[in-house]
């Protein structure tokens, strides 16, 4: 039995397979609407979430399965002090697969150690959020056609942003990947990521605070939010916040086929005027998230794709 706890739990081969299935589902949604008939997803959300929880639930429903679960710790037996191990042992008798979000880092790993069903980490605090990373990869794969030979700009809070760290760790497994890190000096990527991932793998990267000058080089621009609470003083925040807001003016030198991604929720780091630009794919990205989760549920439940051979012929 396999679980998905970190973005790197899948080999490149398994990942390619998963993304290919997600692509087939996306192109032939109707065909997959009964493949999980009679199966149940337990949606165990110990803290509030809008997109991720609904995306998982929509994914299972799209496959013809059912969903049960809770959407906050208050409405679960954790409020009575039940351990994760005990909860998952019991849930294993009620459902076929579970998606767990928990405020404590490592909680889904604990669940997977005691679970009788596959566990998907749907976000554990500021630690991992593997289905977001896989969604990012699916979006790039579907819209660029390939995950190799890309220059990826990551912008915003590169120090604390878990989505950026996971994306970097996932993309370095592909060929000819370059990164352009765009952030205020206070929010540069952490040293361990620079040392253990980028330098160790001889991955080319540049760091800059000048957003516009690097724009023409990018195939992908991955935006994240610069959060006020990350700054030591209000003055620095006010000085820097506008430098990292994407608007139509900053996009004028960008490539025509560049993609703008964002894990959402967007606050003000992408001006709403950008939403109508064909390069802005962050809402499409949320749509791909559902197909990615559908494919993941099928893979972890070991449900074969009834249409795979047909497409290959």
């Amino acid at each position: 039995m396999k679980h998905l706890i970190t973005p790197l739990d899948l080999s490149v081969h398994e990942l390619d397979d998963l993304l290919a299935l997600a692509g087939r589902i996306y192109r032939n949604k109707e065909r997959y609407k009964k493949v999980c008939e009679g199966r149940k997803l337990a949606s165990l959300f110990y803290e509030p979430s809008t997109r991720t929880r609904l995306s998982f639930e929509a994914a299972m429903m799209n496959l013809g399965g059912n969903v049960l679960g809770f959407s906050s710790a208050d409405s679960s037996s954790v409020a009575k002090g039940e351990s994760i191990a005990d909860t998952i042992r019991v849930i294993s008798y009620y459902a076929d697969i579970c998606a767990m979000r928990h405020p404590k880092e490592g909680a889904p790993l604990v669940a997977s150690m005691y679970s009788g069903i596959p566990v998907i980490n749907a976000g554990d605090g500021g630690h991992n959020h593997p289905t977001q990373t896989l969604t990012d990869l699916l979006t790039i794969k579907e819209l660029k056609g390939d995950l190799n030979n890309l220059t990826i700009g990551v912008c915003g809070d590169l120090k604390f942003g878990r989505t950026v760290h996971s994306l970097i760790n996932a993309m370095v497994r592909y060929k000819n990947i370059k990164f352009v890190m765009i952030s205020p000096p206070e929010l540069k990527i952490p040293d361990y990521l620079r040392r253990e991932t980028l330098d160790a793998g001889n991955i080319p990267y540049t760091e800059t605070s000048d957003f516009e000058s690097v724009m023409p080089d990018l195939d992908i621009l991955y935006m994240t939010r610069v959060q006020r609470e990350r700054f030591f003083n209000e003055e620095d925040y006010i000085r820097l916040k506008d430098s990292f807001i994407l608007d139509n003016n900053k996009l004028k030198n960008a490539r025509k086929d560049m993609l703008i991604l964002h894990p959402l929720p967007r606050v003000n780091e992408i001006s709403t005027e950008v939403d109508s630009d064909p390069r802005a794919v962050y809402f499409k990205q949320a749509q791909y998230g559902v197909y990615l989760r559908m494919a993941l549920i099928m893979k972890l439940l070991e449900i074969p794709d009834p249409y795979q051979k047909e497409e290959l012929c």
């Binding site: 039940e82 351990s83 191990a85 405020p103 404590k104 880092e105 909680a107 790993l109 604990v110």
Partner: peptide, 23 residues
């Protein structure tokens, strides 16, 4: 010692603190 780690949770009684050699 990470206060955000699941091992710090009062409901996870008896959860082993396990560290793995990474470097």
């Amino acid at each position: 010692k990470n206060p955000r780690c699941v091992t710090s949770s009062s409901s996870e009684r008896g959860l082993a603190h396990t560290f793995k050699l990474t470097d």
